[in-house]
Amino acid sequence: MSGVIVSVDRNSGMVATVKMGDQITVIDESGVETGADTGPTPMDYIMSALGSCTVITLHMYAQRKNWPLERAEVTLQQRTLSNTESALAAGDKRTLISKTLQLTGDLTPEQISRLKDISSRCPIQKTLEAGMVIQTTLI
């Protein structure tokens, strides 16, 4: 199991320091009053994980098939669905993430169609769609 350590101290406002292995970065909840706009938001990181997993999965698949995929780009947008759109009870919220793919290369229509299908099979998308169990322990 890989570990990520995230911390916020009293003087940092809403800026969290994130340590992932030897990498250190920040997450900033800039939409709130004490955010400093010094880094991406938590949702930016979720969408970045989904987008990077999608394009990497596409390239891995295309390389295995020896297909001429030169570039894969995905644009992601997120919004909260209304209760009528999501068929949830009043007060419940559901998030919709829209992915728009742009594939560059001398690909056949069949290859493009298959890559579109493969784009939804990246591990991050599968995890997000399945939901997660999160266990909290206080030490």
Rank of each mutant, 00 (worst) to 15 (best):
Q102L: 14
K99W: 01
T34W: 12
A89W: 00
V74D: 07
S2G: 10
T57S: 09
Q23M: 15
R114P: 09
L103A: 06
R94M: 01
G131P: 10
I5W: 13
N11Y: 10
Y45A: 05
R10K: 14
M60P: 00
K19E: 14
I97T: 03
R121W: 00
G3P: 06
C53F: 01
T136R: 12
R71D: 09
Y45S: 04
S52I: 03
S86Q: 03
T54I: 01
L103R: 05
R79M: 03
G131C: 04
I118Q: 03
T38D: 11
D37M: 11
L96H: 02
C53V: 03
N66M: 08
P109V: 05
P42Q: 06
Q77T: 13
A16M: 14
L58G: 12
S86E: 01
T100D: 09
L115C: 08
L69S: 02
Y61G: 00
Y45P: 10
M43C: 02
A72C: 05
V4R: 08
P109C: 08
R94C: 05
G21W: 06
I118G: 06
S120A: 13
T34E: 13
T127K: 11
E70V: 07
T137S: 13
T84Y: 06
L88P: 04
K116C: 12
D106G: 11
S2I: 03
S98K: 13
D37L: 12
P123D: 01
R64H: 09
V55A: 05
Q78Y: 10
C53K: 01
N66S: 11
D9F: 07
R71W: 04
Y45H: 07
L107F: 10
K65P: 05
T54D: 11
L76C: 04
A36D: 10
T84V: 11
A72K: 04
V18F: 09
V15I: 10
T108F: 01
T104C: 06
G51P: 01
N83E: 06
D9N: 15
A62Y: 06
T84I: 09
V8T: 14
T38L: 15
T84E: 15
G39D: 08
T54P: 09
I134K: 06
I124N: 04
T100Y: 12
Q77H: 11
I97F: 03
K19W: 12
L69R: 00
D106E: 15
V18I: 12
V15M: 09
A72R: 00
D117I: 10
L138C: 10
G21V: 01
L50R: 01
T25D: 08
T108Q: 02
L115S: 11
M20R: 10
Q77L: 07
L69F: 02
T84Q: 13
V18G: 07
I46A: 08
C122P: 02
S12C: 05
L107N: 02
H59W: 07
P109A: 09
Q135C: 09
E85R: 03
K126V: 00
K19F: 14
E29S: 11
L58V: 06
H59P: 05
L81Y: 01
T17K: 15
C53I: 00
T34G: 07
Q125L: 08
D9R: 15
Q77D: 05
